[in-house]
Every structure is written in structure tokens, then in C-alpha cells.
Computed example of a mutant assay.
Amino acid sequence: MHLQKVTQLKAILDVLQLAEKLKFELRHSWLSNGRQESVAEHTWRMSLMAVLLEPLLEHPVDMVKLLKMIIIHDLVEAEAGDVSVLDQIRNPEIKKIKIENEKRAILKIRDMLSTSIGQEVYDLFYEFEEKQTYEAKVANAIDKLEVQLQHNHAELITWEDIEYELSFVIAKHVEFDETITLLKDLIEKQAADKMEQAGRNVDEIRKRSETLFK
């Protein structure tokens, strides 16, 4: 039993070494101090959001599962790298490549762990991707909201043109829960206020968003 546990712990250390890449794997988002955000930082604030929102959610949530799902959902990017949503919008083929790379990555991670925890990590990754359970819906909504919140914190000079329209497309990801919908409204208003302060016509941007992302 002792040797078996040591073997399992060594496998965990190997995955943690792989996961360390998430501390320097950069995302498209920028921070308020002008530095680019890492994947690990995004995951950390998603986790904090889940903890803070949990008492306000409409339905009971399995917090252990929710936090595990959040922590695991971008683990594949330590192997496959982060791919910007903007790149996927511009070139749908990139999304297909991303999905295949992430499939290989989660299989590798499952096999590295090779015990029941490996299968659990694998299953949680796909539960998040499939968005069917309440926990998966909450995790996915928080994922989208944290991204927009980070954009709101960053200088507009870091925004690409399409990100103005993307500020108004989160509704379909949050409509299952009133609390998360209200949070979306507040984050969306932050974005709109930021645009207005910069002299942007928010009504026109909303209309373009409705046309581009029906």
C-alpha cells in the first residue's frame, strides 16, 4: 500500500509540474496594470467568484464538484495552449484543431494519473464541456463572466474591435439562474459605461452584436 501511494503521489507531482505552465501560459485578456493575464489567474478568480456567489444561487450546488470543475476546466491548456475566442471566431478551423488538441491533452492527463482521480479529472472536464448539469452551467457562466469582467478592468486600448460587440452576448449562458443573470447585467453595464465614457455609441454596438451573434 505504501509503495502504491508513493507511485500515485509521483504521478500527481508530474501533473502539477505540467500544470505549472498555466502560471505563464498567457491569455488574450489584459490586467488593469497593463500586464497580460495568465490562465492560472483566470482560474483563480473564477474559483473566488464561485465561492462568493454560492449563497445567492437559485438552487443548491455541489460546491466541491463546482470548484473541482473550475480548477480542471483549463488544465488541458498546460498541454494544448490557450486559444483565443477571437481567433476561433475569425477562423472556425482553429476551433476544430483546439478541440482535437484538448482531447489528446485530457487523455494524456488521465493516463498520467492512471488511478480513479485520473478518470474523475477526465469526467469533470467533459461535464464542463457538455454544460448539462447545474454545476457545469454555473461553471461555464462564471467562465464567461470572469472574462468580460477582466476586459472591463483593462484599458480600452487593449480591446479589439469585435470585443465591443462580444460584451453583449453573455445572456444565453446565464438565463438558467436569476442571480447569475443579475450579475451579468451588472458586468454588462460596467462595459457599457466604459464604452460611453470613451465616446462610443453603445446602442449601435448592441445592434451590431445582435446582428453578428444571433
Results as ranks from 00 to 15, higher is better:
38 S>W: 09
68 K>A: 11
40 A>E: 11
53 L>P: 02
86 L>H: 06
37 E>S: 05
79 E>R: 13
30 W>Y: 15
85 V>E: 10
82 D>F: 15
54 E>T: 06
45 R>Y: 14
70 I>M: 09
58 E>N: 14
83 V>Q: 08
58 E>K: 08
35 R>D: 14
23 K>A: 11
79 E>G: 01
47 S>T: 14
96 K>R: 15
31 L>K: 14
91 N>A: 13
25 E>H: 02
77 E>K: 15
84 S>N: 08
81 G>P: 08
80 A>F: 05
40 A>Q: 13
38 S>C: 06
47 S>K: 11
58 E>V: 05
35 R>P: 00
77 E>F: 02
89 I>R: 10
52 L>R: 14
35 R>Y: 06
49 M>P: 00
27 R>A: 08
50 A>N: 02
96 K>W: 07
90 R>L: 14
69 M>K: 03
40 A>P: 01
78 A>R: 05
48 L>D: 06
56 L>D: 04
83 V>S: 08
53 L>H: 03
65 K>S: 06
55 P>W: 06
28 H>E: 15
67 L>H: 04
49 M>A: 13
78 A>Y: 05
67 L>W: 03
34 G>P: 04
73 H>Y: 08
89 I>D: 03
96 K>V: 12
65 K>R: 15
78 A>V: 04
24 F>K: 12
60 P>W: 01
91 N>S: 14
55 P>F: 02
62 D>W: 00
82 D>I: 10
47 S>F: 08
33 N>F: 00
94 I>D: 01
48 L>Q: 13
40 A>L: 10
43 T>G: 04
75 L>P: 05
72 I>D: 07
95 K>C: 02
27 R>E: 12
47 S>E: 12
92 P>G: 07
36 Q>V: 09
94 I>K: 15
71 I>H: 11
50 A>V: 02
35 R>M: 07
55 P>T: 04
56 L>A: 08
92 P>F: 10
80 A>W: 02
69 M>F: 07
96 K>T: 12
45 R>G: 00
62 D>R: 05
49 M>V: 03
90 R>K: 15
59 H>I: 01
78 A>F: 05
41 E>K: 09
76 V>R: 01
92 P>V: 11
